[in-house]
Simulated scan of single mutants.
Amino acid sequence: MAAEHTAASSRLPRALARRVGRDVPTALARYRVMAWIVGVLLVALILVAVPLKYAAGLDGPVAVIGTAHGWLYAIFFLTACDLALRARWTLRGTALVLIAGTVPILSFVAERIATRKTRAGERL
């Protein structure tokens, strides 16, 4: 039993190592789409929905856009982590990209930097 556990656990790092670095262009495309969606929703939330809430007393736009942004940020988080593993990003670079998804406009800047460096084969 202990030999089976040791054999299974020794295969896990090799399986992960085979997956890392593969399909980077596809993962990058998924990340870019989600970065733009999350960025646009965050800008709409901050520049449109929040002013409508406080200036006109309309709570609906904040509820709808805020909820959509929250759920889609979770998908963005997963796609960014997937890309980070495949492109072998550093932990610092990964954390910065994930945090950038929560700051209006910065998600677009982070997406451009991440795309440029990933396409060049550089670690983020």
Results as ranks from 00 to 15, higher is better:
4 E>V: 13
78 L>Q: 07
91 L>W: 14
74 A>F: 10
57 G>W: 04
98 L>T: 08
67 T>L: 11
103 V>Q: 07
46 I>Y: 15
85 L>Q: 09
3 A>Y: 13
54 Y>D: 05
104 P>H: 02
65 I>C: 06
105 I>Y: 09
122 E>M: 08
64 V>W: 15
22 R>D: 06
45 L>P: 10
46 I>F: 15
69 H>K: 12
17 A>C: 03
92 R>A: 13
34 M>W: 12
22 R>N: 04
108 F>C: 05
53 K>T: 04
61 P>E: 11
90 T>V: 01
112 R>N: 07
73 Y>L: 06
75 I>C: 12
11 R>I: 03
73 Y>H: 10
122 E>C: 02
78 L>W: 11
62 V>T: 13
55 A>S: 13
5 H>Q: 08
69 H>S: 07
109 V>T: 10
39 G>W: 00
82 D>I: 07
74 A>K: 05
86 R>F: 04
53 K>D: 06
69 H>N: 09
58 L>P: 01
118 T>V: 04
56 A>N: 06
34 M>K: 02
11 R>T: 09
83 L>F: 02
36 W>I: 12
10 S>E: 14
39 G>P: 04
11 R>P: 08
73 Y>E: 03
78 L>P: 00
34 M>P: 07
65 I>K: 11
88 R>M: 01
114 A>M: 05
22 R>Q: 06
4 E>S: 14
100 A>H: 10
114 A>E: 04
117 K>N: 08
101 G>P: 00
7 A>R: 14
6 T>C: 02
111 E>N: 09
61 P>M: 10
86 R>H: 05
30 R>F: 07
93 G>Y: 03
38 V>I: 10
111 E>C: 10
26 T>C: 00
34 M>A: 11
64 V>T: 15
27 A>K: 13
63 A>V: 14
47 L>W: 15
32 R>W: 02
43 V>R: 11
5 H>T: 09
31 Y>P: 00
112 R>K: 10
53 K>L: 04
73 Y>A: 00
50 V>N: 09
31 Y>R: 03
122 E>L: 13
122 E>H: 07
59 D>A: 15
31 Y>L: 00
105 I>P: 08
8 A>M: 12
2 A>F: 12
34 M>L: 14
1 M>S: 10
86 R>S: 03
44 A>P: 11
107 S>A: 10
79 T>N: 10
34 M>I: 03
119 R>M: 08
42 L>T: 09
115 T>M: 03
116 R>I: 03
51 P>D: 11
54 Y>W: 12
50 V>Q: 14
31 Y>S: 00
104 P>C: 11
7 A>I: 09
80 A>G: 10
54 Y>P: 01
107 S>P: 05
106 L>Q: 05
49 A>L: 08
112 R>E: 09
76 F>K: 11
112 R>W: 04
36 W>G: 15
24 V>C: 01
116 R>V: 05
101 G>W: 02
103 V>P: 00
52 L>R: 15
116 R>Y: 01
37 I>D: 05
117 K>W: 00
56 A>H: 12
34 M>C: 13
118 T>A: 03
89 W>G: 02
19 R>L: 06
103 V>E: 01
64 V>H: 06
15 A>F: 15
7 A>G: 14
40 V>W: 13
79 T>E: 11
105 I>W: 11
86 R>A: 02
28 L>R: 01
117 K>D: 07
117 K>P: 00
28 L>F: 06
107 S>Y: 03
86 R>I: 08
71 W>Q: 08
